[in-house]
Measured scan of single mutants.
Amino acid sequence: SDPSEDRAPESARVGNIPSSTSALKVPQLKVAESAQGPAAAHTTDTAGYNAMEESVSREKPELTASTERVNKRMSMVVSGLTPEEFMLVYKFARKHHITLTNLITEETTHVVMKTDAEFVCERTLKYFLGIAGGKWVVSYFWVTQSIKERKMLNEHDFEVRGDVVNGRNHQGPKRARESQDRKIFRGLEICCYGPFTNMPTDQLEWMVQLCGASVVKELSSFTLGTGVHPIVVVQPDAWTEDNGFHAIGQMCEAPVVTREWVLDSVALYQCQELDTYLIPQIPHSHY
């Protein structure tokens, strides 16, 4: 159930021909089969995070001529859309010479989310990475209204306002976009420790780096000194050995919190207090 199309920051360009055919990675995205229709094609874990990302398996898109002007500035990904909605975005992107990729990268400028009429969405990996990267996180209605009015409308009017977990109007995407000089995790050293489900560890690490944190791979690698705040992030329900995560405190002095601390902080683009996310640790033995 991992969102495989989000696994690594590679891009698939639509609308320009790469210098070599080997560089072309066409979105071959799968549809989750469901008797209840597209709305039930998501699996949500206890964290309220949509693990099964969206989309559609299609034939290789038709490439435009390399001489045609390509908008190098805009690059989009989509999240939560049905196959039909994805194809509408594809046509919109081609019309406006926008790069459409299946994986979010540093070059991505827009994340197009499936939302309700009030621009509230589910939480997906692309949603988190879009906010963390200060990108435009907009409703699919931006595409449909632009098509209806036959011009590209202003993104401000379609920015995602909230999500089904953290609140319907928290304005996290807007706050992140306007606060890239004040990253929420700066001054923190974060170790993403142990197993994680539904989200590859490297993507979680990239997320906290985008928010200004330094990533530490091992508990023994924390910088011990003033001005640096170490934090260990774990996902308790992913551990097979009972309560192993309670013993992390015996290996390092850092506070240990659940992954929800990261996800909530990123969604709201406000660093949350650790208290409600802390995992009790077995104290050091004193002999």
Rank of each mutant, 00 (worst) to 15 (best):
N198M: 05
R161K: 14
T101D: 08
P83S: 13
H97L: 09
Q180N: 14
G187P: 02
S285L: 13
L219T: 15
E155Q: 11
N50R: 09
A40W: 15
A117T: 06
T258D: 06
E106K: 07
T99L: 13
Y193L: 14
M152P: 06
P255C: 08
I17A: 08
H284M: 15
L188P: 00
M152T: 00
R69D: 13
M74L: 06
E84Y: 10
E189I: 13
V31G: 12
N16I: 15
T82R: 05
F196H: 11
E54K: 14
Q281V: 07
V14M: 04
C192S: 05
E189S: 03
E54I: 03
C192T: 06
F196R: 10
I98T: 05
P3C: 03
G212K: 05
Q270V: 15
V137H: 01
S11L: 09
L263G: 01
Y277R: 02
D116H: 00
R186G: 13
N166L: 04
I282K: 15
E178T: 06
Q171P: 02
K151A: 11
P27N: 10
S66F: 11
Q272P: 07
P61V: 06
E59R: 09
A117H: 14
F119P: 01
S4R: 11
L24S: 10
V70G: 10
L263T: 05
A176N: 02
R259L: 02
F222S: 11
V257Q: 02
R186L: 11
M76F: 11
A12T: 04
P280S: 11
G48D: 04
A23P: 14
Y140C: 10
P9S: 07
I279A: 10
E155I: 12
P236D: 03
E118V: 05
E84T: 03
E218L: 11
R94I: 12
Y90T: 15
P18T: 08
I104F: 15
D116S: 02
A51S: 11
L153T: 07
R161S: 10
E106A: 06
E260Y: 13
M87E: 13
R58A: 09
F158Q: 00
R186V: 14
T240Q: 10
F92V: 05
F128S: 00
A32S: 06
S79Y: 03
R7G: 13
K25V: 12
T101Y: 05
A40C: 10
N16F: 01
V233Q: 02
T46Y: 06
E10H: 08
Q36H: 09
Y287I: 10
S1I: 06
W239E: 15
V111T: 02
D275L: 12
V234E: 01
G15I: 04
I184Y: 01
N169F: 05
V26L: 13
Y277T: 00
N198H: 13
F185L: 11
F141K: 03
T67P: 11
E33K: 09
N16L: 11
S139L: 01
N16G: 10
L63P: 06
N166G: 07
T21R: 12
V228T: 08
S19V: 13
H42Y: 06
D45N: 15
F185P: 00
F196L: 13
V31L: 09
G133P: 01
D45R: 10
V256P: 13
V257G: 01
E106D: 09
L81I: 07
F158T: 01
E5R: 13
T82G: 07
G194S: 07
E54G: 12
E59L: 09
A41L: 12
H246W: 11
I104N: 07
T108K: 00
A117S: 10
Y49C: 11
N102W: 04
Y277G: 02
V234W: 05
D157S: 08
R58K: 09
E106P: 10
P83L: 05
S214T: 14
D157M: 03
K95L: 12
E241T: 07
Y287M: 11
K183T: 04
I104P: 02
T43R: 03
R168G: 07
I184F: 05
C252T: 14
F119S: 08
Y269A: 08
M251T: 13
S285I: 03
S179R: 05
A12S: 07
K151N: 08
T240F: 15
S179A: 07
C271V: 05
S20A: 04
F119T: 02
Y193E: 07
Q281H: 06
K60E: 05
R69S: 08
W136T: 06
V165Y: 13
Q270M: 15
A213L: 02
V164D: 05
T101S: 14
D237M: 05
P280H: 03
G133I: 04
T101F: 04
P195A: 05
L63G: 03
L224K: 03
V256Q: 10
E178P: 01
S11R: 05
V56A: 12
A132K: 00
V14L: 08
Y193T: 05
Q281G: 06
E33A: 08
G134S: 10
H97V: 10
I17D: 13
K135V: 08
D6S: 08
D2T: 09
T124Y: 00
G187H: 07
D116K: 02
F128T: 01
V138C: 10
E33G: 09
H284N: 08
D45A: 13
I282E: 11
V164W: 07
E84I: 14
V143N: 02
Q36W: 15
L268D: 04
V164K: 03
N243E: 11
P83W: 03
G225L: 15
Y90A: 08
G249L: 14
S55P: 07
A176Y: 01
L263R: 01
A12K: 11
E53L: 03
Y269V: 13
G37C: 08
E106S: 06
A40F: 15
V228A: 07
R123W: 01
Y49L: 07
D157V: 11
T108H: 04
R7L: 09
M207L: 14
G249V: 01
P283L: 06
E106G: 10
E62T: 11
P195L: 14
I279P: 07
M199V: 03
E107A: 10
L81K: 01
E241D: 15
A39G: 01
T201R: 13
I190R: 00
Q203L: 13
L219V: 11
H97Y: 09
V232K: 04
A32Q: 08
Q171C: 06
S285R: 11
S11D: 05
M199T: 06
E178H: 12
R161G: 04
P195S: 04
H42K: 06
R13L: 10
Y140D: 15
K174N: 04
C271K: 14
M113S: 01
V160I: 04
P61D: 06
F196S: 06
Q281K: 11
L63T: 09
H286Q: 15
Y49K: 11
V208R: 02
N50S: 06
K91M: 08
A132V: 01
A93C: 11
A93L: 07
F222Y: 04
M152Q: 08
S220W: 15
N169S: 04
N166A: 03
L125R: 02
L81S: 07
